[in-house]
Design a protein around this nucleic acid. Structure first.
Lengths: 203, 203
DNA sequence: GGAGTTTTTAACCATTTGGTTAAAAGTAAT
DNA sequence: ATTACTTTTAACCAAATGGTTAAAAACTCC
């Protein structure tokens, strides 16, 4: 065997992912990851050199995943309202699976904005945003929706999808929901949020 | 002087606040706070005993502030649409002043949900939420707005206000905005978000 | 100005934590 | 089986960090 064991590597990565997402970069301990994965701490360094390198790999993976999905829908040949519905559904379903994800990503982003900026540059944002704005403008001209910038619309969509997950503890506490009630509320949002947005922009 | 110096105490607290908000509980260093406040590290312990105690005080302060403002508007004698406008304006203006605040609060909440739950219990949520729901129902009966739960509406309002601040680095990177463009976008949201919400629920 | 109190500091300490190293265990080819 | 290599481990190390302590400095009241 001349390669580092792919199974071991994958197991470490997967474990690191769960610990980083739960605790964040500063809060995560290499020892925790090692214990949870069932290896010695030194092995993590053998495979990934340092905590930061390990973190970068995890982060980049999650980051890429999220944006490729979003870009996929935005660039598809679909009516505007269907795109909105698709984005909302995809977002909420993905986040239902990994509720800790946005907190992790956003927190680390505000902790280290420069690093993110670099990654962003790889994404053809101008193209994607431009084509989406064109689609919006066309609907505006047809008198179907109100004038709105692609930026503001996207921010609104993502706000309404992501925020309820980030603020889960607050919502549960404040609205006196148990986990079941919270899940029910999230499920309701899968359709309600899209309707809310469409109703907001429809003329 | 028999009391601990109130100025020193206040200065430490204020400095701690800024450091905690910037770095979070795990990321903040007592040394940083001490340096920034211009004191010795031991002094922080003299005044506040431990890092956690200091943090708790800072957190509780921010937390109380936020909710008393929100509750104030919700319980006021105002038409529904005006309340929405007021909440949006208050939120965005407050967050413009302290952009790091929601990231700090939400992150620490998901790190330590139990502690927050306790604090929540002190707030008469049922009362506030109930009275707000009544107002909504009354507008629904008058045929002015669509049926919606107070919970979902409040979540939507807070999502649209707060998320753009939490995701500032992402938005700036993704939408290729410099700080000026970002501020302009935020300013626009002060009025646009309320209009968006009202348009979404109006019949 | 001196006694008694409070405030502030410098020097330490114990623990945690990321990271290293050298040796042991495992694997594959000859 | 021997050799040559990779994988895994236990034991360490140095730096960082929260916290302690004892003494110096400053203030208050007489």
């Amino acid at each position: 065997m001349k390669q580092k064991d792919k199974n071991t590597e994958a197991l470490i990565l997967q474990t690191a992912r769960s610990v980083f997402i739960e605790k964040g970069l500063a809060g995560a301990r290499m020892q925790d990851i090692a214990d949870k994965a069932g290896f010695n701490k030194a092995l993590l360094h053998y495979y990934f050199t340092s905590k930061n390198k390990l973190f970068d790999i995890v982060f980049e993976q999650e980051f890429g995943d999220f944006f490729s999905h979003l870009a996929g829908i935005l660039m598809a040949e679909l009516p505007l309202f269907e795109k909105i519905e698709k984005i909302v559904l995809l977002d909420i379903e993905r986040l239902t699976q990994f509720p800790g994800l946005p907190n992790f990503m956003l927190n680390e982003m505000s902790q280290n904005p420069e690093a993110i900026m670099k990654r962003m540059k790889k994404i053809p944002v101008g193209l994607i945003l431009g084509s989406f704005q064109k689609q919006i403008n066309s609907e505006v001209k047809k008198g179907i929706i109100k004038k709105i910038s692609a930026q503001q619309l996207l921010i609104n969509i993502q706000s309404l999808c992501i925020f309820p997950f980030i603020s889960r503890p607050m919502i549960k506490g404040l609205m006196q929901m148990d986990e079941k009630a919270y899940q029910a509320m999230i499920k309701q949002r899968k359709t309600e949020v899209a309707a809310f947005i469409i109703s907001a922009i429809k003329l």
